[in-house]
C-alpha cells in the first residue's frame, strides 16, 4: 500500500541489540527527551489574564446594531427568524410613534427581540439574511450561567450601546478601545 503521509514510519521489528536489551540506555535517552521539554515554550494560555485571539471569521454572540445617529436599525421584518435553522429567534414588531424618530430608523421596529442562546448554533445565517445590516455576530461567547432562563437574551442584552449618548461604551463594544480594568 502506498504511504498516506510522509510522516509514517515503518515499525522496526529487527531483534533488539544488547544495548537495547539492557534497557537502561534507552531509559536514559527518554529522560533526556523529557529534560529538553523543560526549556520548550509552554503551550498554556493563562486564561482569565490572557485570551486567545479570535479568528476573523469567528461567530460569537449576536449584536443588534445602531446607525451613526444611534437609531436601531432593526425593522422587525422577521427574515432572520425565518433563516434561523435552530429557530432561536423570536420577535414582536411595533409601529414607531411620531416622537420616537431618534430611536428607530424606520417606521416599524422590534418591540421585543429574543434569541435563545441555548438553541442558537452560531451559524451566522441571520447575519446573512438581514437586509438592514441590523444583526451581527460578535467575537464573544455566551458566559456560563445557572438558569436556562438567563440564556434567552432580550433586547437589552443584544443592543449595542448608543454611539451618540454613550460613546465610551460603544467604543468598548466595538473593540476600538480597551476595557478599563475593574478597580476592586
Amino acid at each position: 500500500m502506498e504511504a498516506l503521509t510522509q510522516r509514517s514510519k515503518p515499525v522496526d521489528r529487527s531483534p533488539m541489540t544488547w544495548l537495547e536489551r539492557i534497557y537502561l540506555w534507552n531509559i536514559f535517552k527518554g529522560m533526556l527527551i523529557t529534560f529538553t521539554h523543560f526549556f520548550k515554550k509552554r503551550a498554556t494560555i493563562k486564561y482569565p489574564e490572557q485570551t486567545r485571539p479570535f479568528s476573523p471569521v469567528f461567530r460569537g454572540l449576536h449584536v443588534l446594531n445602531r446607525d451613526e445617529e444611534g437609531r436601531e436599525r432593526c425593522t422587525a421584518c422577521g427574515l432572520c427568524a425565518v433563516a434561523c435553522p435552530a429557530e432561536a429567534i423570536t420577535m414582536e414588531a411595533a409601529e414607531r410613534l411620531p416622537d420616537e424618530e431618534n430611536l428607530y430608523r424606520e417606521e416599524k421596529y422590534a418591540a421585543k427581540y429574543e434569541i435563545n442562546m441555548l438553541r442558537c448554533i452560531f451559524c451566522g445565517l441571520c447575519e446573512d439574511a438581514c437586509p438592514k445590516d441590523a444583526i451581527y455576530l460578535s467575537e464573544t461567547f455566551a458566559p456560563a450561567n445557572y438558569s436556562r432562563k438567563s440564556f434567552i437574551y432580550g433586547k437589552k442584552d443584544l443592543l449595542i450601546p448608543n454611539p451618540v449618548t454613550n460613546k465610551e461604551e460603544y467604543d468598548i463594544a466595538k473593540g476600538l478601545i480597551e476595557k478599563k480594568k475593574k478597580k476592586s
Binding site: 521539554h37 515554550k41 509552554r42
Partner: peptide, 10 residues
Amino acid sequence: GFIQDRYGPD
C-alpha cells in the same frame, strides 16, 4: 507540568 510544556499549579 514543565515536562509536558505546561505551567503546573500556579
